Amino acid sequence: MTARKPPPEGRLALVLRSLRRRTLDEAVQDAEAGRGISMPTAAVSLPARQVLRRLLMALLVLALTTLIVWLDRAGYHDSADESMNLLDSAYYATVTLSTTGYGDITPVSASARLVNILVITPLRVLFLIILVGTTLEVLTERTRQQLRVHRWRSGMRDHTVVVGYGTKGRSAVQTLLGQGCSTSDVVVVDPQERAVQAANNDGLVGILGDASRSQILLRAEIQRAARVIVATQRDDTAVLVTLTARQLNKRATIVVAIREDENVPLLRQSGADVVVTSSSSAGRLLGMSMMSPRVGAVLEDLLTYGNGLDVVERPVTRAESGKSPRECADLVVAVVRGSRLLNFSDPEAATLQLTDRVVTIKHAKGGNGGS
């Protein structure tokens, strides 16, 4: 007699327990500390380049001081040797700029002392500013980053978390921005540093890490997000991310892109609200384009937001309430009533209600008015 397989709910529970590599309290502590959060910044040079530039400035000040002392070497007295060579000049410049001042080499002539007052002292101050400024910047960079992260976290509400910033994730973000979503309301999570850097360059906050781990998603404030887009490279990764996201946020709308149709039921069980099969969708578009290239062009136009025709969902206006969908200014293709989606030809959708929402096709702003 063969053993019965555990039900899907049992398998999901086992997967959930396996995901708990760390406790939820530890994950919250990591999120509050702002670890792994990369904030978008203006284009600046790398920290190593900044330190190198300041080091070169300090060496330039040192070289300039050495040259000034060597040119006026006759006005200095060396207690160890009456003559002043280039090495003695460099030594004097070093101990003077660093405020060490051993006193073995001293300016004795009036011109040398005047140069020390008017030239070398300002150079000493500049030298110290360069060194101290570099040290303070290194010490305060972490504090500034934590303040920025804390300010960002305190203002995040009803935002969108995008897991995966490849071709699919980037296209999804571009569509969101085209529909009026602000860059400050989008957070990208990706395990690759270059993808996070690309998100920062696009003005988005990036989280570096594996989104199937709860502490990574908590850094993205997923518990307060309104929408989650899962656009990972692998279907099994998408399942784990969806499970973790639904565990942390019960109310968010989760949209997942996968490759294979056979994984759709598993994603539904994992908590996904909408599952888009990229390979099947592309195949259907290819088939329709083969049979009718114009139909394929129209569908591609509808899928490309902001150009030609757009598909949008909007609430019914008071002027449209009680009328037929055909009387609307836009072309209505579906009616959303409660949790049900009604086709435009459905008898129940013959009269619009004020609480309905309609899915319409309209001309894109700035579009050419056609496909």
Rank of each mutant, 00 (worst) to 15 (best):
D185R: 13
V186L: 00
G166L: 00
D158H: 13
T140F: 07
Q192E: 14
G155P: 04
R142G: 06
I207V: 13
T167K: 13
D236Y: 12
P191K: 03
H150W: 12
K168Y: 15
I129C: 13
I216T: 09
V255Q: 10
V188F: 01
Y165F: 14
D236V: 10
Q197P: 07
A172R: 08
V230K: 04
A195D: 02
V138G: 08
A226E: 13
V205W: 05
R151N: 09
A172W: 11
E137D: 14
T143F: 15
V188M: 08
D190V: 00
L128A: 11
V256K: 00
F127W: 05
L248R: 07
D202S: 11
C181M: 15
V188D: 03
V187Q: 07
A195N: 12
H150V: 15
I207N: 02
R251P: 03
R148H: 11
L248Y: 02
Q146R: 15
Y165C: 03
V256T: 01
Q197R: 00
A220L: 00
L248W: 04
A199H: 06
A225I: 06
A211Y: 02
Q223I: 05
V205F: 08
F127L: 05
I229A: 03
I216G: 04
S214N: 01
P191L: 05
A231E: 00
A198H: 11
L147K: 14
E221P: 03
A195T: 04
L248Q: 12
G155C: 09
I229Y: 13
C181E: 14
D202R: 09
